[in-house]
Write a protein that binds this DNA or RNA. Sequence first.
DNA 1: CGCTGCCTCGCTATTTATGGGGAGTTTTAA
DNA 2: TTAAAACTCCCCATAAATAGCGAGGCAGCG
Lengths: 237, 237
Amino acid sequence: MTNRLEDLLSTLQAAGTLEDLQAVLESLRDHYKVEHTVYHWVNSVGERYGAGTYSAEWVDRYLEKEYLRMDPVIFGCFQRFTPVSWKELDWSSKPAREMWQDALDHGLGNQGYTIPIRGPNGQFALFTLNASLSDEEWAQFIDDNARDLMILGHEFNKKALEFEQWGEDGSVPALSPRELASMSCLARGMSRAQAAAELNISEHTLRVYIESSRHKLGAMNTTHAVARALSAGIIII
Amino acid sequence: MTNRLEDLLSTLQAAGTLEDLQAVLESLRDHYKVEHTVYHWVNSVGERYGAGTYSAEWVDRYLEKEYLRMDPVIFGCFQRFTPVSWKELDWSSKPAREMWQDALDHGLGNQGYTIPIRGPNGQFALFTLNASLSDEEWAQFIDDNARDLMILGHEFNKKALEFEQWGEDGSVPALSPRELASMSCLARGMSRAQAAAELNISEHTLRVYIESSRHKLGAMNTTHAVARALSAGIIII
DNA sequence: CGCTGCCTCGCTATTTATGGGGAGTTTTAA
DNA sequence: TTAAAACTCCCCATAAATAGCGAGGCAGCG
């Protein structure tokens, strides 16, 4: 067991291009004898990177129908820390059920396991296995492989980050301490007057910080600036 | 090797109180024959929960001197995804070197390895091992145990989250689709007029969604509402 | 020594958001 | 089926944020 994990990891380490990562996912699929293996991330600007064995038709369909906005897998994983088996999620809403049926029609298996992975600057990625198995078989499969999959997911994310330079440097602007404090106050619901009082500065000075933060973050308005600061992980509520 | 990991994990699983977690850290320290094992998480306000084998004097000293604000370990881990050996970090600044010397004087070993762990709602935790070893011995130790430590760190974090219910207590209010869409538009920087145009509704209607979202999220203003929606993971920029 | 960036404060005018009312239709869920 | 929730539209007055123009002191760096 461990040896096979080491083999997979060394293949992963050897990957030098994004195409290699795609190949790693395909070999993972074959190794685990599942329908699909997928890795993708969702970033703060809406750009996405994804690799995996889903059919192009399903990927197009997913994007076209904007399933991202209501996919219970995305939603569920965004709010939790631990991996999740798809059937544990809430599929009760009508659009969710429609998406589920649509997925089955596009060749997905009835079981899924997704590991949420979080990195710096608000990075959020998902590592997913999809299969056609009974509930019992799937539970056993997860039980047997959960730890290896977690290592694989995180190593995969590390490799993907190397290629894409997710906010390595420069992409996330550095705010000054006062700017960060200003953003933090606003994110916690204070008005300008309250935040200025909290920071013991005039409301006008606070405004200067907000505006400089806005410009540094490339934001259209205060709400946007706070949203970007949160997404980038440079402030925490 | 694997069996010992399993033993440690089952001890961890069995933990029912925060004191049990402390005991797990102590047994980890003994098992790995290191000076200290520490788990703590950090937020913008400061340390919220911590457990480990550091002396009370060092913890007090750390808090008193506000080392949190310039600790290269915190700083370095916040900007990276992968675990780090302390000597790889940037200790060139004067306050950092002073802190390092202070740490040695308080019984810390000369080597450290810290795994950054990120969870939902901006959670950021650190899982650390500290030891007194030569560089070569430490490199070998990390090489041998990195994977197990990663599993342990994540499992430990999972357990700690269970106790503290870091925002996972189901208190996240459910917004309607239009409310979510409104929040999402605002989070992406649109003004009311732009968002209303995007959603093909009147600005007045949009306002109704914003206000109902605000009330559901218990927010003081629009910026606060968007910040909470982002933190709760119910919208993605 | 000058440069840059950070921190602090002031003014006026305009645009935008908020808070308080209503009142209908459609969709979903018990 | 029926009730609850969601979706859509409107007015008015006030509060708040934004945009533009300023200014000076302080720290670190080449």
